[in-house]
Design a protein around this nucleic acid. Structure first.
Length: 492
RNA sequence: GUCCCCAUCGUCUAGUCAGGUCCAGGACACCGGCCUUUCACGCCGGCAACACCGGUUCAAAUCCGGUUGGGGACGCCA
């Protein structure tokens, strides 16, 4: 295999969802590993359901993930001449035939078969129509579709799947499938094969939901006289009720965009996705881009479906806990310089950005991220839990307000007094602020924790956070003094 | 109904092809402990699985058969 050529062929009928993203990722990884080419092909032949926004959304999603492609985007509808030519050829060569069965008739038969618990496939009504009969119906102006004529052969057809091994199916089990609509437009099964042949696709990596398509497409490759590519069918991703995840039934939680909007690091999300159905064979779970490309292989893709562990209404985890765990791992461990631009974006979005964070206060900005990030899970936490570091307008959370402030009425005096002391401090350092806080506690006759935790609540609005005196120094003398002096306003 | 695929902790998974080193390893989640001004990080410890039945074998998570369960497909969608 000199130069692998793979493709990601989304249909633009909605946003990019995690199943599609994972398929794109696996294709991308294989291409990167083998030095191959990735083709992006938009399969927009379903004109009723395809939309421009959807195309934009899918491309945006791929770009956010960092999944780039080498060719395309191609649009399937731009190649309809190819598809029609292939269909004509099949008809001419007797490998396809006109079928005049109406949708109504077909639907009726289908329902009857289902009700009688009979096989539901096409019964071949039009397969043996004589030329005269076909002419007659055509002259009568009847609509017809083109069906592929599955060869009448004994035995089985099959292929080697890189994930699943040998897959086969009896010829007798395969129904004559429609390849061209009555309006003349060719359908997926055909278009997809014609395009893959033209694009010289060598490897088809797609979901297991395509397995029956693959069997039919094998026939198409043969009929069109083209070599078949290598196939690898990935396991599906199911929900906790073991239903296939879909845009329709799961909504935004399965949309890639949701993860971008909720503070995921793109690479962290890729890292989560790749583990849904693949593992390196050892205990590693966190991979850099280079490590993952190096470790990836098709034959280590799992055979069985994985579950996207999203529990609706879970108060603690807004999505799969493992996804969050991986994201927070990256959030807390990547070089702060790498994280800073992404925090910057979030702060801009929330109106918390100051330009001097790029200039005079850049060091401060980096140090602040370093100080607070170990408690955060997603980027947006910098704008919510971390708000008091970047703005004077922040909320005091109710729980710490009650527990750390209101419970100790004395703080009404102690904290402003401490603020006076802090104001006089010429060296506003961790050592000095701590010393004064402890003196303050001693004079008040309370444990240092009372002063410290009261101060934390007043200064940050939060129940928990980094070491208190690091916070003070980070937020700065002036702001700390001013915030502490306002303590009495918190009491009713 | 027919065909295809799959089956290890709650979840993601290692181990299955080349049977013994597995009374099954890791991660997440959960529970406990240490650390600590809080919370988190970190560290230490714990809970927790080979779907079932039969066969082959000295030996089965691993091989074979069956059962059950789950999923997918069966469209003039992709």
């Amino acid at each position: 295999m000199p130069h692998p050529r793979l493709r990601f062929p989304p249909s633009p009928t909605g946003y990019l969802h995690i199943g599609g993203a994972r398929t794109a990722l696996y294709n991308w990884l294989y291409v990167k590993k083998t030095g191959g080419t990735l083709v992006l092909r938009i399969e927009d032949t379903d004109t009723d359901r395809s939309s421009e926004e959807s195309i934009a959304g899918i491309i945006e999603g791929l770009e956010w993930l960092g999944i780039d492609w080498d060719e395309g985007p191609y649009f399937q509808t731009d190649f309809s001449a190819d598809h029609r030519r292939a269909a004509d050829k099949l008809l001419q060569e007797g490998k396809a035939y006109r079928c005049f069965c109406t949708r109504e008739e077909l639907e009726k038969k289908r329902e009857a078969a289902l009700a009688a618990k009979q096989n539901v496939g096409y019964d071949g009504t039009c397969r043996h129509l004589s030329e005269d009969q076909v002419e007659g119906k055509l002259e009568a102006g009847l609509d017809s579709v083109l069906r592929f004529k599955v060869p009448e052969r004994q035995g089985k057809i099959g292929y080697h799947d890189e994930v699943l091994g040998r897959i086969e199916s009896s010829y007798a089990e395969i129904d004559d499938f429609v390849i061209v609509r009555s309006n003349g437009s060719p359908l997926y099964l055909l278009c997809n094969v014609v395009d893959d042949i033209r694009d010289r696709i060598s490897h088809v990596v797609r979901g297991q939901d395509h397995m029956t398509n693959t069997i039919k497409q094998l026939l198409l490759y043969e009929a069109l006289g083209a070599p078949v590519p290598i196939f690898a069918h990935m396991p599906l991703t199911l929900d906790t009720k073991k239903a296939k995840i879909s845009k329709r039934s799961h909504g935004e939680i399965v949309a890639v965009q949701f993860y971008r909007d909720n503070g995921f690091l793109p690479w962290a999300f890729n890292n989560f996705l790749v583990l849904l159905g693949w593992s390196p064979g050892d205990d590693r779970e966190i991979f850099s881009r280079e490590e993952l490309i190096e470790a990836f292989s098709l034959d280590r893709i799992n055979k069985s479906a994985s579950i996207f562990n999203y529990r609706k209404g879970d108060p603690k985890f807004f999505t799969d806990p493992k996804a969050i765990a991986i994201n927070e791992h990256y959030l807390r461990t990547i070089p702060v310089e790498e994280l800073a631009p992404q925090v910057r974006e979030v702060l801009i979005d929330h109106g918390l950005w100051h330009d001097d964070y790029d200039g005079a206060r850049h060091r401060w900005f980096l140090d602040t991220i370093e100080l607070i990030r170990s408690r955060f899970h997603v980027l947006t936490d910098f704008a919510t839990m971390g708000r008091a570091y970047f703005s004077d307008e922040y909320e005091i959370e109710e729980k710490p307000l009650n527990k750390n402030v209101l419970k100790h009425p004395g703080l009404k005096q102690w904290l402003p007094e401490l603020a006076d002391d802090y104001e006089k401090l010429s060296d506003f350092s961790v050592e000095h602020t701590e010393k004064l806080a402890r003196v303050c506690a001693e004079q008040a006759g309370v444990k240092p924790g009372v002063i410290i935790n009261g101060m934390r609540t007043v200064v940050t609005g939060q129940l928990a956070g980094p070491s208190m005196f690091d916070i003070l120094v980070t937020i700065g003398q002036e702001k700390v003094v001013s915030r502490l002096k306002k303590t009495p306003q918190l009491y009713p």
